[in-house]
Design a protein around this nucleic acid. Structure first.
Lengths: 211, 211, 211, 211
DNA sequence: TATGAATGAGATTTCATTCAT
DNA sequence: TATGAATGAAATCTCATTCAT
């Protein structure tokens, strides 16, 4: 009972609050999350929360931004610094990434985007600019590299790098909606996906290694 | 947008109400939909609505069930009655279905499931039992048929028929979240996907027809 | 305890609520009045209040309008139907009116206008259009009538009918602010005011009758 | 409008704060004024403000007192030191004063008194003791002086010196509520008022000069 | 003195649900 | 059946005041 009622920690507050808010939004979605609950989780009064974030919506946007940024940065760094062949990149870093995301808390962001995106156009725009378009162009680079050096043939992937991502998204959605009742080995599925894709687009007919 | 649209014979009141509710939930999601609005759209008083549906949640569940059933039935009929080869089925009815869904209003159900599913386990269970598991087993049948008759090799699809569906889901999500700002030719993408899949799993080395 | 919890009285509600609101606003002013309090006084739930008045501000405006209208109508009727001489009108109906207002509950409206007017320009405009400009022009008519028939000389009143009203306003303000501690016989004061005015503007030098 | 305006020597902190508070209260009234805003205007932290004034209400009272005192003093000095005849005083210093007040920022005090007075009895009492009663008795002195030396007749002004002030109050209220939309030449009106009053109470029948 | 981060009570407003009619 | 006026709990946001620094 002799805990200080006040703790001045101006620096850390925003991060503490967005962390708590992430949890809450992840559990309940935007509408069903109570500002009260976020404050309690952050160990902070409601009033203080409003000192840092003018509205619930602004808090929500801050959460999305905060948790997306690191992912994007990591991905970009990996793509740019890698000197692997196209196939090696897909089987290596890309597959790792694909396996990781559906298990990370960040998967929740997808749920939030799908659920709230239509009502928050600026958020969607932000997500597009910073995540989707950049991710897609990185994938396109990889694929084109493979085509250029003759290891990949021209294929639907050239126009639709999304096809590389769709099982990742599927894994995420599955893990959100069904995983608890109907487990799916997403790792295996994603491996199988890469195998199939490579079998379909690799140029040399020696496909023994691609099983 | 708030004129009563449904004012037919008395006998269909529940159907009129769920139709109105579908519209409303589709536009706004569960929380942001007002019971008042649903009643107005249905041309019915709030009191009457509560006579048929004890709570807002029950109404929501009825909506999901009502609109999923016809889709499922259509799919099942098609699968069962078809006598096409596996490849022909994938290139024909399945591709048609895949192209249709992301453009139909039913795509909204996916948004609702993702957004509200985690809070409505019985709804998720219903969806699983009636849609997902049945759809997946239908797809498995097709694939195994191809394997059995020697046209497909054993592949990841045998364990993960989901891989056939993931671009469909992706198309749906894209159309919900980004389509208005960043058009994606989902038809072409889905065609490309089937092409790639078939190229990867078809047994005969003559792959000229699969471009 | 067997009072009905519900009383359907759609017709009377708005009037009941504005009456309660008038009391509350009169006692406390706009900001310090709690919507809760208004609802309690009206014997009504807060929710119902919001069914009839979309915001607190709209309620406030309704109050002002409701309570001003009757006064204005009464005044206008009196002025227009009267066939008295100018002097007789000032000593009769006008003086009566002047004496009545500072004692009526309506005096509170003046307080509200002064306090809230600057923040509610449309309210001020309404008050101007419906009360002040009409009142002033009625007074001008009276005065000009007196000038025309030769009983009044030209005077400051012709340009500033406000001078007839200023002691009325003063009485109102006094009664709001000081009356309880420092009684002022506003009736006598107003009589004295009319006497002085008439002595100043009457043309015939026979001033014996003027107090 | 929210830059610190007062940042002078430390010694005057209370004065700086009340000056800032006067501005704020004048603009917004008591309730709508934020302590935060006052502190910002004064270029001072909220904490310091609370060091000098224990509550918002106390600050408010200090403001009223501070800004009334100088006005009262000025008026008193003028009245007492004047050796003019009664008429000359009314046409000179009094008329000047009457013209000045409705244009000065001090007019706002009237608004505040009317709006907040009923809830702050001690404030009203202070105002009475220091302003109203003294002002009225000063006016009474003038009038009686005129009566004593035979230039004025006995009139309602003897009992109600308020009648001299009522157009001043009216001008103030008008300028607060309507001036911006419906200009009134208060100077002319006040001159007309003095003319009429003098015409009514001056004893000599030669009234030619009083037009 | 001086600061401003932090509190918490309380205000307005919304809306699922009920029930007299 | 059918209505929609009425309820009341709860949610977001504000702001005077406190207190660790």
């Amino acid at each position: 009972m002799n805990e200080p009622r006040y703790r001045r920690r101006k620096e850390d507050r925003p991060a503490e609050i967005t962390a708590a808010a992430f949890e809450a939004f992840a559990e309940n979605g935007y509408d069903a999350t109570r500002v009260d609950d976020v404050a309690r989780r952050a160990g902070v009064s409601k009033g203080l929360l409003y000192l840092y974030f003018k509205t619930k919506e602004e808090l929500f946007k801050a959460v999305i931004r905060n948790f997306i940024m690191p992912m994007v940065d990591a991905l970009k760094t990996e793509v740019e610094s890698s000197e692997l062949s196209a196939e090696a990149f897909l089987r290596g870093p890309f597959l790792d990434f694909a396996k990781r995301v559906p298990k990370s808390p960040a998967k929740i962001l997808v749920r939030l985007l799908i659920a709230e995106g239509p009502k928050h156009p600026d958020l969607t725009a932000f997500y597009w600019d910073n995540v989707v378009s950049q991710g897609l162009s990185a994938l396109s680079q990889i694929i084109e590299k493979g085509v250029r050096d003759g290891s990949f043939r021209q294929s639907a992937l050239n126009d639709f790098p999304q096809l590389l991502l769709s099982p990742v998204m599927f894994s995420i959605v599955w893990s959100i909606v069904f995983q608890s009742k109907h487990a799916l080995d997403t790792d295996k599925m994603l491996e199988g996906h890469i195998d199939m894709i490579l079998r379909a687009i690799k140029r040399n007919d020696d496909q023994t290694g691609a099983a």
